[in-house]
Design a protein around this nucleic acid. Structure first.
Lengths: 332, 332
DNA sequence: ATGAAAGCGCTAACAG
DNA sequence: CTGTTAGCGCTTTCAT
């Protein structure tokens, strides 16, 4: 049994398809009487409009495609929440896709999304392969590239420079007098932004004629457990470190736990530095240093930009919106 | 400039629209030669199929609608990852929506999704208002209700009984000899499943002629920080507690942090019990009790069920798939 | 204020 | 193996 169509609503209300269509969309130039009859009929029949037909006919959709690498890292759910919140009530609707940090998968996800003819796309990062970029350009819709800033955007760009963020953290840590510095990270092969932070960090050390004394990296996904394990391994190799930089706060939290178990005073003897400014960092019994990335704001900004870029206002918009993470060093 | 259509691909390849259509979909009964020509033409022109037209014409979509209350609680991203993973490669595509724990918003999100004519829906919980249930039933597609088990499902149901989970945790804690028991929770007004766990937990206490000695609840969203604050408040009111049950592991982690700062030995002096079995519980420097909920598996199962329910196999499927969370008490 | 006609881009069904 | 015809359910455009 098929779902009721607009035609059936119209018949039940005793008007034409067009009048029914206008009435339901709240268009001007429809008599109060028709509106009432149509609304009533639609309600009674249980009519739910068909967006497929609507979008095909109107030659536009209310869809904004959003592609993120994963949902396992809390950062991305937060970005998505920001996007959702801004879109709420605008009539536009976000559609999410996951790339699993895989460029091929990302390309296919994007291709799939484009086949729904979204009115804009928001994608993570600037490092897409050429073919993916070509797909996006040919779509001829506003494209927002999100999170990163170190590269050439296709269209719009909202994010922060991870290279600069790593460098800034390095300089900040050096001001505290720390000199024996180690690094713990994970998934640098796929998490290009974490890798950029590490490079920036190392550059700041070089400028002070220092370098990483020891590092421990794993290909796995980041987690407090992994951070804890790698920290133990690192401290075994290099017990005299007075500071460790982590690929992110999840890993850094694990570092804190390792230190608690080992009886190492944080931050007095060992300073722990992460990235993101996650909620958990606030709750920990000791303070860590971190860069607060405005994840939700970046999502909100991207969504707002996408909306504006669909209007004539488009030409007057800034193509690049740069955020700067705020560094806190904890109790030091 | 409009995007190229199938017609243009066909023209470029020197065949008819239908042959082009068949060639691109890899249908049988198309000559090798046509396939090659069409593929080449599509590639050259940069053709991306139009799902709107496809779905409208074929009278079916490859969409599965998924509605969850939020992405802030890591549990839901994990569920979504499970769903995504199962759908990968099946040609079906998940579309996510957020209800923000608001029944009205949930209804509108579901109504919106249904207007895209998804082939199945997966929604969180069993406690939808009648009107929402009516919408879902009238859609005449497989409906999977997820996470919860305490209630009457519309169609299919995958989850666990939160009442039973709370009760089981209560009984387990009692076997450890704890008698002075407190509770810390948040958002029980909207998080109906957490409220069910609390009720089950209290029931198990009553059966041992006990009751909660003290409790601290807040309307906010759960987080380690909130758990820490409420734990401090609770211990001020009731310092002799030997056990605290939390609405979930995020809150329980905050409880651990509070105890560390207060110098309270966990679990020796105070046993901390949460719910979910989150990754962070493993990394903490002390052990907490928790119920391990198979979140990813529930998502996978729901997706698998939705897929099967779209086939003739539908009649032979179990309507209810019950999971039982595994309880671990930590070092006790 | 309302309606009729045309068409969005594709596939199902039938013919060749 | 390939093409033709007839929609899918809606909106746009043009009449009235």
């Amino acid at each position: 049994m098929r779902r009721p169509t607009l035609e059936e609503v119209a018949a039940a209300a005793g008007v034409s398809k067009m009048t029914a269509s206008r009435a339901l969309r709240g268009a001007a130039d429809v008599s109060k009487d028709s509106i009432l009859k149509v609304r009533e009929a639609a309600e009674r029949i249980g009519y739910v409009g068909n967006q497929l037909a609507l979008s095909l006919s109107a030659q536009r959709t209310n869809l904004i495609g959003v592609v993120v690498p994963s949902l396992s890292n809390v950062v991305f759910p937060e970005v998505l929440s920001g996007i959702s919140a801004v879109l709420e009530g605008t009539g536009m609707q976000a559609v999410f896709g996951l790339s699993d940090y895989d460029p091929d998968k990302e390309r296919e996800v994007i291709r799939n999304m484009l086949s729904w003819r979204p009115s804009a796309m928001i994608v993570t990062g600037l490092d897409q392969p050429d073919e993916t970029l070509r797909l996006l350009r040919q779509a001829d819709i506003p494209i927002v590239q999100l999170m990163d800033l170190d590269g050439e955007p296709v269209d719009f760009n909202v994010g922060l420079s991870h290279g600069a963020a790593g460098e800034a953290m390095g300089r900040a840590l050096l001001t505290t007098g720390r000199r024996r510095i180690g690094y713990v990270g994970s998934g640098l092969g796929r998490d290009l932004r974490a890798a950029k932070r590490k490079r920036g960090f190392e550059m700041s050390l070089r400028q002070a004629d220092l370098s990483l004394e020891a590092e421990e990296v794993a290909p796995d996904f980041s987690s407090p457990s992994l951070g804890k394990r790698l920290t133990r391994a690192l401290l075994l190799k290099a017990p005299e470190l007075d500071c460790i930089y982590y690929s992110n706060d999840d890993m850094a939290a694990g570092g804190v736990f390792a230190c608690m178990e080992l009886g190492i005073a944080v931050p007095d003897r060992l300073l722990i530095a992460g990235f993101n400014g996650l909620e958990i960092a606030d709750a920990l019994p000791v303070r860590i240093a971190t860069s607060h990335s405005p994840r939700r704001e970046m999502g909100e900004t991207a969504a707002r930009l996408a909306l504006q870029a669909m209007t004539p206002e488009r030409e007057r918009l800034e193509r690049i919106v740069a955020f700067t993470p705020r560094i806190t060093l904890g109790s030091e």
